[in-house]
Amino acid sequence: MSVVVRTIARIIVPMILAFGAYVIMHGHLTPGGGFQGGAVIASAIALLLVVFGSGRLAGHKNLLSLLEDLGAIAFVALAFLGIGCTFFRNVLAGSGGLFGMPVPPGPNPGFLNTGGTLPLMNWAVGLKVAAGLGSVVLLLGLFGGGDDR
């Protein structure tokens, strides 16, 4: 692409990444969550793919696959945290520790330190969705690289 598109993409990609991280991080307080934030981050990968071409991103294919597997493993491990009672038990909610602040019932301004395992699961699923969709887009762009471009 031309230099204008490349410059604008260099400016706008960090903003997209920050917005995706915000959507994932506040998934238990505001509309959003792991899936939506992961899709936003994957759109940043798609923008990079369109602007810089698939050749420069080809080296990151294995990294994306690794991140997706890491997200899946983290999700299942977080589900196994509550195996003392049952699978997917929210052990951290209300315990007073990490993400364990008790929530005042009713409408409140929203506190980041609540939710138990939900924010951690949001991060795991966000990582998984972002890496998965990014690798799908990258694979579709990389297919038959020689004669298409």
């Binding site: 307080l29 509309p31 409408p107 409140n108 301004p109 929203g110």
Partner: peptide, 10 residues
């Protein structure tokens, strides 16, 4: 309203 308690109308 949306089922979110953050700044929900009481």
């Amino acid at each position: 309203v949306a089922p979110i308690y953050t700044y929900a109308p009481p």
